[in-house]
């Protein structure tokens, strides 16, 4: 492993994104617009403020989905374009490649999270008890998790079609079980236990903790679980990426 090579990969991925300003704008703007849409939808509803209840979970879900997809597509492109084969024939550790990706997409996620959190709290009046910046930190951890999972599963996808199918297979169940639709402790026993081993649940819990209370002890614990999953996915990704292919 080498810091120089990891940074080279990250800088290259960012340069590619910079050449594609539309993707960059979509990446930053879409989550903000969706938060605004959510606010508007619940705006005139009487009773409890549903926006305050749902928004934190969405702040966790967006970066996860987006970075999962962006990573799957980018790595598949790298594979089919032959650049992966060339890189693997060079003195590049597999972890250099994976960490480079995680770093680049983590940085993008930081911009994305800062904007989405800024819009939600600044303009849409999201009520947050804990420190607002911590929402962005959880967003970044979550995006890195999405990237790590995308890197891991892309080892199993031979075609773009397969890669896209991993999204409903691996991401949608996590959204259903993360506590957004039904609180996690109100789920049937088995589903609750499944939800306990899915990383997105911890990211959503962390966001909800920040929004709902000013004590941050639980947040750091949940954040650590998310980070742990991300590291595990990166390690699995490195283990499943083969230098030699058939």
């Amino acid at each position: 492993m080498s810091v120089r090579r990891t940074l080279a990969v990250a800088a290259r991925v960012l340069a590619q994104i910079r050449r594609d300003p539309r993707t960059l704008v979509l990446l930053v703007l879409v989550p903000c617009l969706l938060m605004a849409l959510l606010w508007w939808m619940f705006h005139d509803q009487p009773g409890v403020d549903l926006f305050d209840r749902i928004a934190p979970a969405l702040l966790a879900i967006f970066p996860f989905i987006v970075m999962f997809l962006v990573t799957s597509v980018t790595t598949l492109r790298e594979r089919s374009g032959g650049t992966l084969e060339r890189l693997l024939a060079m003195p590049l550790a597999k972890l250099d490649l994976l960490l480079g990706y995680a770093l680049a997409f983590g940085l993008l996620a930081a911009i994305q999270a800062a904007c989405a959190v800024g819009v939600s709290v600044g303009f849409l009046g999201l009520d947050v008890q804990g420190p607002v910046w911590l929402l962005a930190v959880v967003g970044v951890a979550d995006a890195v998790l999405g990237t790590a999972l995308g890197l891991f599963v892309s080892a199993f996808a031979r075609t773009e079609f397969q890669a896209v199918q991993f999204m409903p297979a691996l991401v949608v169940p996590q959204i259903l079980l993360c506590g957004l639709l039904v609180p996690r402790d109100a789920m049937p026993d088995l589903l609750g236990r499944i939800s306990d081993v899915l990383p997105l649940s911890y990211a959503v819990d962390a966001m909800n903790d920040i929004a709902g209370s000013s004590s941050t002890g639980d947040v750091w614990q949940n954040l650590a679980v998310v980070a742990g999953f991300a590291v595990a996915c990166l390690a699995l990704g490195a283990a499943t990426l083969r230098r030699r292919t058939p």
């Binding site: 290259r12 340069a15 590619q16 050449r19 594609d20 374009g81 032959g82 650049t83 084969e85 060339r86 024939a89």
Partner: peptide, 14 residues
Amino acid sequence: IGYVTQAASVYDDL
């Protein structure tokens, strides 16, 4: 080793 793959293995968008 310098390796030239048969199909151009470079980044189109750079």
